[in-house]
Every structure is written in C-alpha cells, then in structure tokens.
Design a protein around this nucleic acid. Structure first.
Lengths: 364, 364
DNA sequence: CTGAAAGCGCTTACAG
DNA sequence: CTGAAAGCGCTTACAG
C-alpha cells in the first residue's frame, strides 16, 4: 500500500537514512538538528558526519507539519514600481531571515482581486501575513485573523481598531509639509492625491489640510490620483492648466511628485522651485537623484521594517503582546524643489531637515 | 503520547473535521478538494457545504509532504534597487500564481554570502530555484541540482554547459550599441562595466568590443563598475576627467547609465547628446522619464519571464525536457541621449528602434 | 463511487 | 542521554 510518488528524480535523504548510517535512532538525528540540549557529543559527531556524507538537510515541510509553525511569513505587496516597496521588501527579507523566517510573496493580480490570494495564504499555513498593499481590502485581514493567522498592516492601517500596523507619521508629515510651504511664503496650494480609499492618502491629505487651516490658509486645490505616474501626470496638467495655478504642490508619493515635476518642467516650461514648489512623500532613492533633488517627507524604511518584525515576533513568540498600531516618525528632507523659509532648517546626517516651530527650541 | 503543541491560538480545521460534519470519510473530503473525478455530486455537495460551514482550507504543507511537491519556487534575488528586478519579480509572481505556484523569496545578505540561503532553499523543498542575482556563485546551483532541485538562471548564465537559463541577448545587444554609435558618427568610445564576474557584463562588453572591432574602430576605454550608482558615478568622473574624453559611453545597465548622465550634466556641464552620447541596457521604467529619455537596449521582461516559467514547468511537469539556455532577443530603443545616424531608425509600438544594416531589408 | 489504511519526514512526551 | 512510538494533515493504491 505504498503511495506511488510522481516520478521523483531522486529520493531525498531523510533523517532515517542518516540514523541508519550513524547507527542511532531517527529521534537522535532529529535531536541533533533541533539543537536539543540532551545529546552526547559522541552521538552528535556521529550524526553530523553521517549527515554530511549523505548531504542531509532537515525537511522544513515535515517540521512545519508537526510543529504547526511554518516559519514562513506571507507578504502581500503591489505597486512594485513605487521604489518604496522594493526597498521594504529587501530590508524585510533580510530582517526576517535573521530570525529564521522566510518570505512567501503574494502579488495582487491585474484585477486587484484578493480572493485567490487569500486562499493561497490560508493554504500555506503562513505564520503571519504582512499586508503591504493599499488596495487590498481589509476583508482579507479579517479572514486571516479568523483563521488564527496574525495580520500586520504595513504602510496602511486597518479599519479594525487596535489591529497591528506600522505606518509612517502620515498626518504629521502632511501637516509639516503645509507648515514648511507656508513658512516658505507660498500662497496657493494643491494636493495630488493617492488612491482615494487608502489610509495613507487619507492621513497625508488630512494633515496637509489641517496644517494649512491652522495657519489661516485656504484649503488646497485637489486632484485625484492613484499613486501612479499616469494619474499624477494628468492631475498636474489639470492643476497647471488653471487660470491661477498653484505655487506649491504636495504629491502623495515621490513617484507622483516626480511625475508632477516632469510635467511642470517639460510641458509647462516652469522653473522649479522658482515658479512652483513640489514636495513628495517617502524619500525613495530616486528623490536624491540630481535631476530631481526632491523635497520629501521621509518614511524611514529600516525603522518601519524593524517595527514590523517586532510586531510579528511579538505575536508569534509570546502570548502576551496584544496587536497594536505603531507609528514611525519621519522627517521632512529639504532639497531643491521648494523655496525655503529663512529659518527652521537644520542639518542632520548630512541632510537638510525642516523643524516645525513647535519642535525646535531655537528662537529667532 | 500526544505531541504537545506550542500554544496554538486555535486548532485549525482539518479534512477530518469536515468529514465528520458531512458524514463521509476523510478520503472523500480529500478527493473533493483534489478535484478527483470519481466523486458523486451528492457527496461533493455535502463536503463543500461542511467545508464552508467550518471554514476549511486544505493544508498545503501536509499536501506537499505526501506529494513531494511544494508548488513553491524559490527565487533568489538581489539588487532590488535596479528597477529591472522588481519588474521581474512582479511579472514572475503573477505568471507563477496563474499556474498555482508561489514564490519563496531569498535575498542575499549584506556580505553576499549564499550559504545560509542555500540551506534554507534545500530545507524548504522548493520545487525549483530561480537564481536571479548576478553575484551568487554557481556553487549554489550545483548543490541544488545535486539535491534534485531544478535551477533556472535568470539574467545570467551558468558555467555548466546546457544548464537552464534565460537571458536577454547580451552579446547582440552590446554589438548593436556599437554599430549604432558608430553609425551616429561617434569616435571615442567608453564602457562602464557591470560586476566583473557576471555573465551579463562579460557578454555585453564582448559584444560592444566585437562590434567596434568589426567596424574598424579602436577598442573602448573601460572603467570597472558594480551595477550600482556609486561605481557608475566614480567611473564617469574618471572617463570625463581625461584629457581626451569619450564622445560615447555605453553603460552596462540603465541605472549606471543614468548615474553617468547625471554626472555628465551636473558635474561636467556637458550637454547630452550634443557633447556626449550615453546608452544604457535594460530599458527599465526610469529610462522613459522625461528628464532622462535614455537610449537603451531593451530586455523584454515579459518575454523573459514567460521563458523562465516555461523552463520551470518543463522541468517539473514533464520528464522529457532537458534543461537548456534560452536567449530572448531585444531591441535598441532610441531616445534622446544619443546622436542619431541618418538612417536605420524604424518605429515599432510607438518607440523608435535601431535596426542594424544586416537586419533591415530597406535600401538607402 | 466510497472507505480503511499506509505513509510522507519530521518532533516530542514517555520510559528507560 | 537514548529509543520506540504516536501523530501532524494530507494523498492515493487497494478492496469493495
């Protein structure tokens, strides 16, 4: 009644094979590779030698089945053309590998439909799911939590209060951008929105509007967007085609800010920042490229990733920790796409940074 | 003698639970979810309803253990700051998901050490490994093949003859760049190299040199590089600081070409392409950005990914197919960073493309 | 079409 | 410290 195997090219080496060669029990082999304390040196040596001879590696699949832990973290991500996400992915992968966890990558399909993905996530018994796509509905998160899989939102929040999430300080970022632009003497503000349903867009926009309002400025002109190049391009054309155009545009992401900058320069012949100031959000690598030198509110990838890893480990390796939202503070990095206020700029780590009056203790 | 489970928050629903509720055998549940043909409609309905009630999903880990197939493809990648790789990752993920395969992502650590990664790849019983990092040694490929795991090289070749690989046409690409630049009337050529040990760099450089030689031109000046921004920047400074500087630079990747372009413009005040022509390789998204408009040899990501998926499926789902190298042809996309020859440009899919004299049938 | 049972390769309580 | 054995949740040949 042996189960027939689909033509496996070669049988893999198992702990039983190693045990036979080393003349010990299969349990002993298992104990050696699990670094179980009660193993004699003699046995350890025998097992390791036999394992080396045969080229044995423990089968993580079998281990997962019995331990109920796959040491696999599902990561759902989209928008890989926004450089922020590859940066996160690389950093996250390194951080998790350091703790012995691997990443099973899920990307949304063209339609953005999350349900086929959900089935896979649940099937593969991932230990936790990191949801890093703004467009994926919270539904998937609820289903996973229901199935006992911890969900960590990344660069987004959940509608569920108290859910685990890591975000930059989107509201404060938006507000700082407003304060910075007002201090720089700008008069007519505009906002190029990210995806309407995303928490990042909602908070960045709310912060920007609140900041302007607090300083007695009119609310910004607003064009819709989707966190992509196309929509930012279209939005910029709309804004700059108006009879009285804005003199400061805040775009919901760096990618969108760069699209805006390109349109302003090449299609409208504007000089940035002389005719128009532009601010982005994320501070991705391209923001530093000489042709752009984009002023941007920095989301610190490393700190956000560390926080996410902390949340994951808390949920997996201890019972005590309740899920919670973590907000990572950021800084407004001031480069060449904005007219600058006379005061309030300080240098940190070789970058010029804006400090809002409330934050700085230096008087005039 | 029940194995104690580390405090699992909730027991997951198994096929046995579903069987009990539906009053059928566990095998029946398994057959329904495996789409086994011999299942009565009545039973199928009963099972599916019970499954829905309980929120059952088959456990892919358990399935993997018995079928000896994880339906997981390991993907080893680095250089995620080179936009080419995120594009590949996104496309590959979609393509594999369509066939029911998932991606387990491995990234090289800071030291570039591949061995810890190797252990993980082998442990997780991936069905195949796609090696997409130029810096990872072929050693890891050999170990995997030895363990019965098919390895597909992506955007690199293997020293092992006949190994499975997918690459752009690096040699032809380099040669076309040479022919194009010579046709454009350039005189002094330079090459900014990618990582010295990489097959992509070797072939691109060899093609470029061969193309120049065939047209009776002197060999290019050469500066070393690492496929990154820093080295391209440094290399460009070296090249442009010479008493007789090149009038055409071919960089081994778009990322390097853009770094080169930035240095030429901002540090040397050169006008591109008036004073200097620059050509990249890959045709990533940023190459199309208005500030760059980079002439670049395009590696078609979709076609390369399709070929990789084909190779993977051939190895996994049929015995017949021997591993083989696949070379995907590319096109030299002509934009604004090069002086153009009077003839030989055609328009395809809205892009200007260079056709070498040997390829085109149109007379003068 | 359906069920009972073996077995995938491990971990771990139990007994010595 | 060590071994025999149960069991993780499936798939599948076998028998009916």
């Amino acid at each position: 009644m042996t189960v027939k195997r689909p033509d496996s090219p070669k049988r893999r080496v198992t702990s039983t094979d190693v045990a036979a060669l080393a003349n010990v029990s299969q349990s002993a082999v298992s104990r050696v590779f699990a670094h179980h304390p009660s193993v004699s040196d003699k046995m350890r040596r025998a097992v390791l030698e036999a394992a080396r001879t045969l080229g044995y590696r423990p089968n993580a699949i079998a281990r997962s089945l019995i331990t109920q832990r796959s040491r696999i973290i599902g990561v759902a991500m989209a928008y890989l053309d926004n450089q922020f996400y590859p940066e996160v992915l690389q950093s996250l992968s390194r951080a998790l590998q350091a703790y012995g966890y691997q990443i099973l990558l899920f990307t949304a399909d063209e339609t953005g439909a999350a349900d086929p993905m959900l089935e896979q996530v649940l099937s593969y018994q991932v230990d936790a799911l990191l949801l890093a796509s703004v467009s994926l509905s919270s539904h998937i998160a609820e289903e996973c939590e229901l199935a006992g899989i911890p969900v960590i939102m990344f660069n987004r929040t959940s509608s569920t209060p108290g859910a685990a999430s890591v975000t930059g300080d989107n509201f404060a970022g938006g507000r700082q951008v407003a304060e910075f632009l007002v201090a720089g003497g700008h008069q007519r503000f505009a906002y190029i929105a990210g995806a309407a349903e995303s928490s990042t867009n909602r908070d960045r926009e709310a912060g920007f509007c609140a900041g302007l309002a607090a300083l007695g400025m009119a609310q910004p002109m607003r064009v819709p967007g989707q966190y992509d190049w196309q929509s930012a391009q279209a939005g910029t054309r709309l804004l700059l085609g108006r009879p009285t155009r804005p003199d400061a545009i805040f775009a919901a992401s760096d990618l969108m800010a760069i699209a805006c900058l390109e349109v302003a320069r090449t299609e409208f012949g504007l000089s940035v920042p002389h005719d128009l100031s532009i601010v982005g959000f994320d501070d991705v690598g391209v923001a530093r490229w000489p042709s752009y030198q984009l002023t941007s509110f920095a989301q610190p990838v490393e700190a956000m990733v560390s926080a996410a890893v902390t949340l994951i480990l808390e949920r997996l390796e201890s019972l005590a920790a309740p899920p919670r939202p973590i907000v990572i503070p950021g800084r407004l990095i001031v480069r060449q796409t904005t007219r600058h206020p006379a005061q309030g700029l300080v240098v940190e780590d070789g970058e010029r940074v804006w400090r809002t009056p409330s934050e700085t203790t230096e008087g005039p």
